[in-house]
Design a protein around this nucleic acid. Structure first.
Lengths: 130, 130
DNA sequence: AATTATTAGTCAGTTAAACTGACTACAATA
DNA sequence: TATTGTAGTCAGTTTAACTGACTAATAATT
């Protein structure tokens, strides 16, 4: 397998499989890009700029993503006490469930892959990193 | 770092760094997506369908990518003897140079990363895969 | 041998997910 | 107080994929 794909392929697959599961379980209104939001959100809430930085995308892009997730009921928007420009986003109860469920799914997939059971093998990557 | 990013982040960085280098060295007319072409091309040449399958994209998308690279002088188009529907693409001398240089760059970056010297650390991923 | 199904590739249009640039409102600094 | 910087939004663009419909050629089936 080609070098860059050793990294990008499992990433792509993880997202695909995650969103298949999420859809089945009724978590609607989400697209792969939204994973970067809830995966990077701090317990106490996060700002858009902060999320953008962590996710490695622009604040403009992140702005749209959080807006979607707010509308879908996964996030709630709060005022930042002390900075009236800023907005804080926190997970709703629905969002918390989503996060927990997602983490579980992802861990399961990787565990399977490591045992050479799943649809993908991490062996070549492991060798590269040795 | 977030789970999916442990895979996608190095992939993204590798591509960015590779294309910075390539641009400096005068390999123009290329965008990140084109890496999937020359990285997957067989020595004896490859078909569009075959390349698409390896790269994990549709033949329609791959069709455009090889067209670009042909125009930029990295690939040459040949008839497939024995199947008049099919087209074979082979690297030109320029394309060969590109491939060799790219591989070298990518290997160098990863080697640096493994020694914890570069702009990124592979340690967290290594731990995950253990 | 003729028909049917499959495969290789292209054309056209669409979608997802990012980007840049310009802007407003507020905060921090000189 | 005036200037510079930061948080976020709006608008438009670009990159890189996608699906669907099609032609031409090959392979399979009857």
């Amino acid at each position: 397998m080609e070098l860059i794909s050793l990294f990008s392929e499992p990433a792509r697959l993880l997202i695909t499989l995650l969103f298949e599961e999420l859809k089945i379980k009724g978590y609607t209104g989400l697209k792969p890009a939204h994973a970067q939001v809830f995966q990077n959100l701090e317990k106490e809430g996060s700002r858009i700029t902060e999320l953008a930085l962590k996710a490695g995308i622009t604040k403009q892009s992140m702005s749209l993503l959080v807006y979607d997730m707010e509308n879908a009921g996964y996030l709630k928007r709060y005022k930042d006490k002390g900075d009236n420009r800023a907005v804080i986003f926190r997970l709703t109860a629905k969002g918390e469930k989503l996060l927990k469920f997602s983490d579980q799914i992802l861990r399961n997939i990787i565990t399977k892959w490591k045992k050479e059971q799943g649809e993908y093998s991490l062996n070549e990557l492991k060798v590269l990193l040795k």
